[in-house]
Amino acid sequence: MQHRDKDQTDNSFNPTNVSRVKREHQRGAYDKETVFGILDAAPFCHVGYTIENRPYVTPTLHWREGERIYWHGSSASRMLRQVKTGVPVCVTASLFDGYVLARSAFHHSANYRAVMAFGTAHMIEDRDEKEQSLKVMMDQLWPGRWEELRPMYEQELKATTVVAMDIEEASAKTRSGPPVDDEEDYDLPIWAGVEPIVHGTGTLETDPRMLPGVPLPDYLK
């Protein structure tokens, strides 16, 4: 039987031996604000599962509504064929924020934000629910874009599988700030600090077959 902490609240996930951060446990967090913030900020996730006792990890776009994570892909996908039937999966998402340069090789590190979430994945079978979940994904990325697009063909919906996973337990692990050196090393004349990694989008690349005069949408400005 998994041991559960007694201080579970509606604002936190209650860790078990599966999700509890063990190494550098002071970096762990289980509150939903932290977990959801990282999931929403990360543009990509990785879904871990097993097929015939062999582990697989698949990168994919994801989106969240409440305590449910969604992802989608081709109905022919091996990963989606496996997880849509209702199987345990582990979803991870991470953001790399910078290299941490210390005064010794041992204390070099990285600043990051990461989440590990566990649950049972299942396929969204209702046609209207599937389409609505895809609309939510689009509107979270580019608010208002779904209404600009042509409606999805039925064959396109059939060719797309949407999978949902209710988060049963989750943990976040983060590091920020400068290096932590041995006290005697602070007197060494060696540069130390953080080389940050900047997250953002680059210059837009217009489709060469764009019709002339099509304005840039407000959500891309």
Rank of each mutant, 00 (worst) to 15 (best):
G48D: 02
S104H: 09
E131N: 07
T58K: 04
A93D: 03
P59A: 11
F118K: 06
A102D: 04
D126M: 06
H107T: 00
K84G: 15
H108C: 15
R64H: 06
A42G: 07
V47W: 00
I69D: 00
F96M: 07
D139T: 06
A76M: 11
G119W: 09
V87Y: 04
D126K: 09
H122S: 09
L80P: 02
G98K: 07
G48K: 07
E147I: 07
E147Y: 09
M138H: 03
T60H: 02
T85H: 12
K135M: 12
A93I: 12
G98I: 01
A93Y: 06
G66S: 08
L134A: 04
T92V: 15
E129D: 14
Y56E: 15
D128E: 15
V57L: 13
G144M: 10
E129R: 11
F118V: 12
F118M: 11
D97G: 04
T92Q: 14
G48P: 01
K135Y: 02
H62Y: 04
A114Y: 09
R113Y: 08
E129I: 10
V136I: 14
V47S: 03
P88F: 08
E125F: 02
S74G: 11
I124C: 08
G86D: 06
T92Y: 04
E67D: 15
Y112D: 01
E147D: 15
A102R: 07
G48Y: 05
D97M: 04
S104W: 09
Y49L: 11
H122K: 07
I69R: 06
S77W: 05
A102K: 08
Y99I: 14
H72E: 08
A76T: 13
V89Y: 01
A42K: 07
G119V: 02
A105N: 10
H108S: 08
L95A: 06
D128F: 05
T92E: 12
H46E: 07
